[in-house]
Design a protein around this nucleic acid. Structure first.
Length: 572
RNA sequence: GUCUUGGUAGCUCAGCUGGUAGAGCAAUUGACUCUUAAUCAAUGGGUCCAGGGUUCGAAUCCCUGCCAGGACACCA
């Protein structure tokens, strides 16, 4: 096991010693716990008759040993509390092994223990547990990053993003704000679920494996089902399935949907992400705006006790009503250009004069959207419903009641980023089929984002779907805003990473196969020979000298090696 | 996809125009019965991401690759 670091080796030795002392480092029985660290710290100062017989378990995060008494910081799922461990308290008899050997020598930072005792306040004024008994619950074999903190300043923070995301378990142990982010994420989702359920909407599950990846325009992941011998796609959206359920007659359906898109990754995109979509019959997008702003107000209050939330340096107020403005109006405000009456050629001209890049495949709608994206999006800091999008951008959305070139669609922008998207859903099956066919024409023209045609969905609409409004919201992005996270990786427990590649390591066995006696392998490594190719290219005379020197230096009780032996290793 | 920054001890990081690898914390051994970034003394710990090149000599300079971060582009 030469690959183990010194500290890992020491911990394994401690593990063996614990076993020798008859202590099971991984005991089977449950450990009865009757207190939480946070509760003790909160309640004991109010009433010091409480917690006089506590049992608590957690991980050792630091130790301050002062001879026959010690202080330990114990971390449970709720926070940290200090333990006061006195030798003669946990070892009342003659035998002081539990304190002197087990606690002081064989336990380490990172180990999980359970203790019983009573709560008191130290001379320094810190609420602590005076320990009467101590039980080893799990021995940790790897050293934890040591993060220290004083007066709110964190020293030696565990901050390497690669390690934090690859080994999230370590991140969660040493960085308490990480755990808090995910508690808040759960709170946001629960709050939404309650809001929907209270109004009688039904949570449903729809297929993740779809034979037609519909409901959005994005590159899907493809997989194969062997028994059916067909390709299937991981869903890019669940919209078309939820609308089928509205056809089926539900009074409102929603789903928290893990979606998958085979596209680029960056600070706001992960290949798998969570969207919430909800569809309510007999409503329109105006109703949905009110519904959405009330939902966000509720979430903000649940999390922060206030509608005002600091998001990336801006104070955002989620107090309804949010501003509502048509896209063309916002463009006019920002640029002075009225794009509404323009022809495609005029729009192209307008883009040029505004410095917005275009290409030949873009139609009217895409040109308007390009101007909006370039000039307006970033300016929408306070929550704003942008309404009435051009029709070619929105193949699943109903035409605007006053203008057939527009759709009854809104997107909600906060801090310059799109947060939610909603329609008065298109329920005219003939119009829907025509729009799908238009998408197909676009895709034949080379637009690889255009949608597939889902004929079963059209058939469902032909049976009749009530007028319906639907809304989708990116949960990861919402959590980022509500928690102030800078990167989507900070709101996903296990963000996507390239697999770790182990550097090609020559193992001890490889050296032995090469003819090197096992006892010489560590010496060889000490001499800087870590791979077979290094061994083959080494100078035998120098190696003979080095090994001889190291043999003396390391006081090895093995016979000196001869030059012929070294040469035989080198030649295999 | 392009550009850019980085990868050195368990963690956080130094390491200058090339000359045998350093600190703090952590670890080990010892001292210490209310400490709290505990303190004091001593000790050990490295494939300097990998592979090539230049050189008498490379953590350091050059090239290629891998991984990560950032920016841009692309992205209903």
């Amino acid at each position: 096991m030469a690959e183990l670091s010194e500290q890992e080796q020491i911990r394994r030795n401690s593990l063996a010693e614990l076993k020798k002392l008859g202590i099971n480092p991984y005991p089977a029985p449950l450990y009865e716990v009757n207190a939480k660290s946070a509760e003790i710290l909160e309640q004991y100062p109010q009433d010091n008759t409480l917690f006089q017989n506590v049992s608590i378990a957690g991980r050792i995060m630091s130790r301050r040993i002062m001879g026959a008494a010690s202080f330990v910081e114990l971390q449970d799922s709720y926070g940290r509390i200090q333990l006061y461990i006195k030798r003669d308290e946990i070892c009342p008899g003659e035998d002081k092994t539990l304190y002197n050997t087990v606690f002081k020598r064989l336990l380490d930072i990172g180990d999980i223990i359970g203790v019983t005792g009573y709560v008191f306040v130290t001379q320094m004024g810190e609420t602590s547990i005076h320990v009467k008994s101590l039980t080893v619950l799990s021995k940790s074999l790897r050293p934890l990053p040591i993060v220290k903190e004083k007066d709110g300043v964190v020293y030696d923070a565990f901050s390497d993003p690669e390690l934090r995301y690859r080994q999230r378990y370590v991140d969660l142990i040493v960085n308490p704000q990480v755990r808090e982010t995910f508690v808040q994420r759960a709170k946001i989702v629960n709050e939404m679920r309650n809001y929907f359920n209270e109004q009688g909407y039904l949570e449903v599950d729809t297929p993740v494996l779809q034979s037609i990846p519909g409901g959005a325009a994005a590159r899907p992941f493809v997989t194969h089902h062997n028994a059916l011998d067909i390709d299937l796609y991981l869903r890019i959206a669940n919209e078309l399935y939820l609308k089928r359920l509205i056809v089926g007659g539900f009074a409102g359906v929603y789903e928290f949907s893990r979606n998958f898109r085979n596209e680029g990754m960056d600070r706001t995109h992960n290949p798998e992400f969570t969207a919430m979509e909800i569809y309510v019959p007999y409503k329109d997008y105006n109703w949905m705006m009110t519904f959405t702003e009330n939902m966000l107000e509720r979430i903000a209050k649940a999390l922060h006790g206030d509608t005002k939330v600091n998001v990336w340096g801006n104070e955002i107020d989620f107090k309804p009503p949010f501003r509502r403005a048509p896209m063309c109006q916002l463009i006019k405000e920002e640029t002075g250009v009225d794009v509404a009456p323009m022809t495609e050629d005029e729009l192209r001209e307008a883009c040029k004069s505004l410095g917005v890049e275009t290409d030949a495949t873009m139609g009217k709608g895409k040109l308007i959207d390009a101007i909006f994206g370039e000039k307006c999006e970033g300016k929408l800091i306070q929550p704003t419903f942008v309404t009435d999008y051009p029709i070619e951008m929105s193949p699943l959305c109903k035409r605007h009641r006053d203008n057939p070139e527009l759709t009854e669609r809104f997107e909600l922008f906060v801090c310059g980023k799109e947060l939610a998207n909603a329609y008065s859903e298109l329920n005219d099956p003939i119009d829907q089929l025509g729009r799908f066919q238009e998408q197909l024409r676009l895709s034949e023209k080379g637009d690889d984002e255009a949608m597939f045609i889902d004929m079963d969905f059209v058939r469902a609409l032909e049976y009749g779907m009530p007028p319906t409004s639907g809304m989708g919201i990116g949960i990861d992005r919402l959590v980022m805003m509500m928690t102030g996270a800078q990167s989507i990786q900070d709101v996903l427990l296990f963000p996507q990473m390239k697999p770790e590649k182990k550097a090609a390591v020559t193992t001890d066995e490889d050296f032995v196969k090469q003819g090197v006696p096992a006892e010489w392998v560590p010496v060889l490594r000490k001499a800087g020979i870590n791979t077979l190719s290094q061994l083959k290219e080494a100078n035998p005379n120098k190696l003979l000298n080095d090994l001889g020197g190291l043999r003396k230096k390391m006081k090895l009780d093995i016979p000196a090696v001869k030059k012929e032996e070294i040469e035989s290793w080198m030649n295999g």
